[in-house]
Simulated scan of single mutants.
Amino acid sequence: MTNIIHQEGYRLPANQQLIDLLYKELGNIPPMKQALKAASLIFRDSSYNAETGGYHPVEIRLVRKDEQWFFDYITDFAYMGRVYPELEKEIDFCWSQRYAFHAGLGDLGHRAACELFTLWQSNFIQYYDMGVYTIQFLWEI
């Protein structure tokens, strides 16, 4: 059986490997008395910092409608600024607001968004497979 995470309002070339790894992580949903409305998965490299770098933190939010999962957004954060670097959005793919953004380029057209998403998810899947992330969940009921 193929796992499916739907795309509503905005279409990007989601790789089945990305969807499968998200379903793998969603398998850890605790039993709840109320219906789950959304889940945010936060992927962090505990050694990532402004001085030495590392793997960027990533937040992926999925919403649940009629027992099906939908992409809401994927945000890749990076330290920005020289004197007092702060963690900020570097890349943002948002299905609910129908846009893609890169900090160095601004809002992206659909073709550029698809190309960046393809590259980003390939890298993310490799980093995940390397085991560089610890994962935190935020459940919304």
Rank of each mutant, 00 (worst) to 15 (best):
V132L: 05
S40V: 02
M130S: 11
N15S: 14
W69N: 09
M32W: 04
M1V: 07
W69E: 09
V63L: 08
L26Q: 03
D45I: 06
Y84H: 14
R44Q: 14
E140G: 13
P30M: 01
F117N: 03
Y84V: 14
P85C: 02
A78C: 08
E88C: 09
N3S: 11
K24I: 00
Q17S: 15
N123H: 09
R11G: 03
V63R: 13
D92E: 14
K33M: 12
Y10K: 11
K65E: 12
L62Q: 09
G9L: 01
R64H: 00
I141A: 08
L87F: 03
C94V: 01
W139I: 01
R111A: 08
D107N: 14
I19N: 07
M130V: 01
Y99W: 11
I125T: 02
E67D: 15
A100Y: 01
R82G: 14
F117C: 02
I42M: 12
H102I: 00
D129G: 04
E25M: 01
Y48P: 10
S47Q: 13
R98V: 04
P13A: 00
E59M: 05
H102L: 12
I42C: 11
K33I: 05
F71N: 04
N28R: 11
G53W: 07
M130K: 10
Q121P: 03
F77R: 12
Q126C: 04
I42A: 11
A100M: 04
A14F: 02
I19V: 15
R44G: 07
E88I: 02
Q136W: 04
Q68G: 01
H6S: 12
Y10W: 15
F124K: 03
S122D: 13
T52C: 03
E86Y: 02
A14D: 08
E51Y: 02
L119R: 14
E51I: 06
Q7V: 06
L22S: 03
W120H: 10
L21W: 06
K65L: 08
A78M: 02
D92W: 11
N49Q: 05
K33G: 15
Q97K: 15
M80V: 09
I29L: 08
Q126P: 00
F117R: 07
S96V: 13
D66S: 11
Q97C: 10
E25L: 06
G104N: 14
I141H: 11
Y55I: 10
L108R: 13
L87Y: 06
H110K: 12
Y84E: 14
F117K: 04
Y48D: 04
W120A: 05
F43Y: 13
E115P: 03
E59A: 09
T118R: 08
S46Y: 09
S122K: 12
F117A: 01
E67T: 10
Q7Y: 04
W69A: 07
I5K: 04
V63M: 06
L12N: 04
E88A: 10
L108H: 11
R98C: 14
Q17L: 12
L138A: 07
Y133L: 03
Q17T: 08
Q7A: 06
M130Q: 15
Q136G: 13
F124Q: 07
A50M: 09
R64I: 04
Q97V: 00
P31S: 06
T118A: 10
L116M: 13
T2E: 14
L105M: 15
P31K: 10
L119D: 13
T52N: 14
I29Y: 01
R111F: 01
L36D: 08
D45V: 07
Y133Q: 05
D66T: 05
D45L: 07
Q17Y: 03
D92H: 15
I125R: 05
Q121H: 00
D107E: 14
L41R: 05
